[in-house]
Design a protein around this nucleic acid. Structure first.
Lengths: 249, 249
DNA sequence: AATGTTTTTGAATGATTTTGATTGACATTA
DNA sequence: TAATGTCAATCAAAATCATTCAAAAACATT
């Protein structure tokens, strides 16, 4: 049985039961106790469940229903590292914008507490509120797939705010075509958020470089890129175009 | 049985019974007396209940607004009836506003599908999206206790819309003092929503009549009241002031 | 294929937490 | 007063935990 399969089984079991014992999971997956333990710690890190003594419990914010590719939690490790680095840029008292998306989501754990957050990510709300962080949500149409707020209402809501720092997720980074993302509506929001910030940061793992998606957000000079690693040849493409900070684990 | 499960059982038992004996909890959970005792002290520390001699009692601080969870478990039966009735008023193609709050929450199950919903209730989102209903969220500050959107941002977001019907929850209905609710910020939102609708409905069970809370929403003439029953003497107070529809189960 | 490297897995260890039983103190009631 | 029941504190057994280590599997490279 593959790791991904076990994770899937565990999460499905939790959907029905609210809590589950480790012993039950051992029987369910035919894996050893150690393996289950490892799975649980991993899933907890990715915020898919909460570990409790004797097993695991579903975390009640059901707004967070991750899509399959995120479930594999293979990339969560690097995402966490980048998110960690990004969070360290934030100072107490800052007023920041958090874009929707799973990479940004990983930042929430590590945010300082005395800040004000504005976001368009519905899935972020649960964790933000748990952390007792003062949070503003922009309005707009709720995109069913990603639970992001988009549209005219979102733009007008967002206009009301100004930020010290904004943290944006993207799907493609290209020296010529700039930052890109699949949904034009979301691209507009991201663009506006960047322009409303004193400092803007794009969080992206190395797989996003030299990729392009459908909708352009802005030129790459508009934000500082935070990433995990950088091939020397791709690095050349971005020289003198923008700031890039590489997270060293 | 995991600790989390026991805690949940205990709290659920308390929601129905107001108080419960330790012996009953022992039978309910198949745990030892010591364990139950430990659970109770723990839950008391977390302010979920109050320990009394021989067992535990539900705490109902009148100062604190009950959280969404608690609210929704009380009187669900009558709430559902009223919500059902309200939902039947909605026609396909309508554009409606749903107020935050547990009574309104009950409507979501029964809504027709070809409608557009605008809401300030974060808690409603899950169900609305599950039902594949086109949903807009207004922006604003997220009130931690009730997960409602309030404040200036919320007002400005709301301004952008117009509704065929709006459905509002209130805490008090009084012929002289009008509709009232504890939070002035929420009162403003409710008021604005009413004035943006062709038809406005207030959903309230009979316990709300002749009650008043801190902040006034509007005079009672501004909306039609949907309720479960009506004493003849209280009925007189409202005669000629507004429309009241009594749900007959 | 053969090799070396990395990742995954299961078992073992000792530390930690949870649990149920026991004790004596205290209050209430008969 | 005696009997009963509840309570907090203590203790040892049981369960669960994190950590370590080596075997097994998967992988990449030659």
């Amino acid at each position: 049985m593959l790791e991904a399969d076990r994770h899937k089984l565990i999460l499905e079991a939790l959907k029905e039961q609210n809590t589950i014992k480790i012993q039950d999971l051992i029987k369910l997956t035919n894996a050893s106790e150690s393996t289950i333990r490892r799975d649980l710690t991993q899933l907890e890190k990715g915020k898919f469940l909460k570990r409790v003594h004797g097993g695991a419990a579903r975390l009640q914010g059901k707004l967070v229903e991750p899509t399959m590719d995120e479930k594999s939690s293979i990339n969560t490790q690097t995402k966490r590292q980048i998110a960690q680095f990004a969070s360290n840029l934030i100072e107490e008292g800052d007023c920041i914008y958090l874009d929707a998306g799973s990479t940004i989501f990983q930042m929430i754990d590590q945010l300082p507490s005395n800040i004000v957050v504005v976001t368009n990510g519905l899935m972020h709300m649960n964790h933000l509120l748990e952390r007792n962080i003062e949070t503003y949500l922009i309005g707009g149409f709720v995109k069913p797939t990603t639970k992001a707020l988009i549209g005219r209402g979102a733009m007008e809501s967002l206009e009301q705010y100004r930020f010290d720092k904004s943290f944006i997720g993207v799907n493609g980074i290209h020296p010529q075509f700039g930052y890109t993302t699949p949904d034009p509506e979301e691209a507009m929001i991201k663009n506006l958020a960047i322009s409303l910030s004193r400092e803007a940061y794009v969080l992206a793992d190395d797989s996003k470089f030299l990729e392009t998606a459908f909708a352009k957000i802005s030129d790459i000079g508009a934000a500082t890129i935070l990433t995990n690693k950088l091939n020397t040849d791709t690095e050349e493409h971005f020289q003198n175009h923008t700031n890039i900070k590489v997270v060293t684990s």
